[in-house]
Design a protein around this nucleic acid. Structure first.
Lengths: 188, 188
DNA sequence: GCCGCTTTTTGCCAAATGGCAAGTGTTGCC
DNA sequence: GGCAACACTTGCCATTTGGCAAAAAGCGGC
């Protein structure tokens, strides 16, 4: 819980009373490996701060292949922003790939925080745009790189993640087959 | 200018007085083909609404290759959000690929609007997160697709853009060589 | 330790894409 | 018309990646 508060304070100020209010609206949830935090077809109505574990955002294409869009690890927020902000049913899944401990806020909790805490919206907006810009900046260069370079870039940016993510999921994130990734690994 | 106001009103309400204020802070700028709206090494201090023309966001990788991250066409905002919001020098360029007419706001103009118009920040935040989510959703699936599919998806999503963008830039956006794109085109 | 399950590695060959360089086409200018 | 500059296409071959299936390795339960 302290990690969450530290994280928030990077983006704006909160006095002790406000910090307590935030804590009171949060709910700790444990999610087992392979469990879903958010599912296609449903409307996302909660946001999670990842206290422990790794999640991934994925969807299925028209050939039934499972595509991993990105991973979310400790001390980041997980939310299906598309569905959450438009209140349209989602088309993707947010799934735990390890056992996870999440700090969850419901839509209502967030609404109350927004109404009560001056500056809350500003904090949330900064976090939102920062994390989206990061995603764009991370994914976008990958298109121009070959598979090996993509893998090496991933290792460089997330050295601690590579060992905690099954090969098949990492391959799907990198946009290559599991076999190819295995071969790439061998040749490094 | 009306297109800008219409666009803004999709994301929140503005009364006539506020609309006039917004207009008074804007500046129409014509940018010639190949001209830069924002350059690597400089700190972005303006935001543009594209009234006419097409821009692209690009950068150079460590092999000196030019990579096109995405295109920005009519009735969208162009800004180097990374640099603009952190005030760190940029690492990418925003360049006109056709003659452009832009409606430009300086940082100061935006700051004044933010202070004067209740709800301005809300409008800006909605626009920001919507456009970032769109970018992620557009780029992310491309990783899992082969070049031909990427090209077809592009045609489907931006049928009016394909003819206005030089082959070389489109290829760099799709993450393939110009020759490959030319071959793909032939075989459709 | 052994079994059954899942994950990862390999081999084989086909298909996609890149690299390079030359050829063709288009456009604007003189 | 002819030339220069640029944009696009093509040919040839090397390299990368995919598809498929089998083998090997890792892991938890008993």
């Amino acid at each position: 819980m302290e990690a969450l508060i530290d994280y928030l304070l990077q983006f704006g100020q909160l006095n002790q009373q406000q910090v307590d209010l935030v804590k009171s609206k949060a709910r700790v949830v444990d999610l087992k490996k392979d469990g879903y935090f958010s599912e296609a077809g449903k409307i996302a109505n909660q946001v999670a701060f990842v206290s422990d574990g790794i999640l991934r955002v994925c969807y299925y294409n028209n050939r039934g292949e499972e595509i991993t869009r990105y991973f979310i690890d400790e001390h980041n927020f997980a939310v299906d922003l598309n569905s959450f902000s438009t209140q349209i049913p989602s088309s993707e899944y947010i799934q735990a790939i390890t056992d996870c401990r999440l700090i969850v806020f419901s839509s209502e909790a967030l609404r109350e925080l927004s109404l009560t805490i001056i500056g809350w919206d500003g904090i949330i907006n900064k976090i939102t745009s920062k994390s989206l810009v990061e995603k764009v900046n991370r994914i976008s260069p990958m298109l121009a790189e070959d598979a090996k370079t993509r893998y090496l870039s991933f290792l460089e940016k997330f050295p601690h993640l590579a060992n905690r993510i099954p090969l098949s999921l990492l391959a799907s994130y990198l946009g290559i087959t599991q076999s190819s990734l295995s071969r790439i690994r061998r040749n490094i």
